[in-house]
Design a protein around this nucleic acid. Structure first.
Lengths: 197, 197
DNA sequence: TTCTAATATAATTGG
DNA sequence: CCAATTATATTAGT
């Protein structure tokens, strides 16, 4: 394909040569031709080799710098994983709304929280006969559980971490409690995370 | 950097050598030692050089195959991103539940549905609703555990993973809820989005 | 020891 | 000159 016959022998430069080249590179990563020629004489290489070495050396430097930049950028932007955080916050808000609505309904029905607890976990399907199947409670308790996962990490270091989420203490502050602003509220909450669509 | 001492001369193999090596490689990419030795004699290289060549040749082959596989896999699978789809679906479920609750409330309060602001479920959190230690809240909270796993292992650096636990939400029996378009802010579920990469 | 995967380095190619 | 790629070698880990 592309193999020329003019390829001679390649030669790894020895430590002395490398050392001198590195020293020169530290002073000036892009020296003039004359300097390179002089250097070539000193280390016993062809000028072309010295030029090539400087090019490769600059390329290596650039790669390292780029990697470093990328790392720090990623470290600063990626850490909280803001995208997932936002989605989780979104879900928390929705759950908060559900909870409040449920409280309101319970009050309306004048229930005592202690007895006749039809809103426990969904395990009590033994005898569901309630005078009011109340789509509400069942619906609420129905399931807010979720499992969302994916693990691609083969042998990497995916460290696990517990999230003590559910800080529902979030001040949702009712500045605008007008009538059917259900939608507006939800609209807001989903609006502050446009990224998800 | 890592240049050890005894780096001597390297030698590019000539066309004849390469040609023979390639022919042999096509027949058997991993020949036995004797064959490699015989080959080395035929082309005038050290056995070690021939072995190295085969190793790197295999590496190159594998890289190309892997790249091809990755490309097609990525092309076909990359888009939906099930994690976020799941989260979005979860949000939709929550909203559906809210809708049901809201409908129920409207019916209970009957006529003033249009201007009903009696239960604007939102803002409280500051005062009010103290008399009820909210057993319900706990119940709800217990159901909120999520398990979210993140996996960007491209660079073998899974930043973090959060675990809650629990199971998949049962599908809501929404055969009756056909008015899905309330606050239609969820509907554009757009599965495209590569925004997060 | 052999193999794989990852990396280093000298050289080439094309722009 | 630079970016990208190639070809050989070397090293770490199994």
């Amino acid at each position: 394909m592309a193999s020329k016959r003019k390829n001679k022998n390649m030669q790894r430069f020895n430590d002395e040569q490398i050392k001198l080249l590195e020293i020169m590179f530290e002073e000036e990563s892009r020296p003039e031709s004359r300097i390179k020629q002089k250097l070539a004489n000193e280390v016993g290489l062809h000028p072309r080799q010295v030029a090539t070495w400087f090019q490769n050396r600059r390329a290596r430097l650039k790669i390292k710098q780029t990697e470093r930049e990328y790392s720090s950028l990623k470290a600063s932007y990626d850490t909280p994983d803001s995208k997932f955080e936002s989605l989780k916050r979104e879900n928390q808000l929705l759950l908060l709304q559900l909870q409040k609505l449920k409280d309101t309904l319970d009050k309306q029905h004048g229930k005592n929280g202690m007895s006749s607890d039809s809103n426990s976990v969904k395990g009590d399907s033994t005898s569901e006969s309630k005078e009011k199947p109340s789509i509400l409670s069942e619906s609420v308790n129905h399931n807010i559980n979720m499992f969302i996962g994916d693990a691609n990490c083969e042998d990497a270091e995916c460290t696990e971490k517990e999230t003590g989420m559910l800080n529902i203490a979030e001040p949702i502050d009712d500045s605008s409690t007008s009538s059917e602003d259900w939608c507006s509220f939800l609209d807001q909450s989903s609006g502050n995370s446009q990224w998800w669509e």
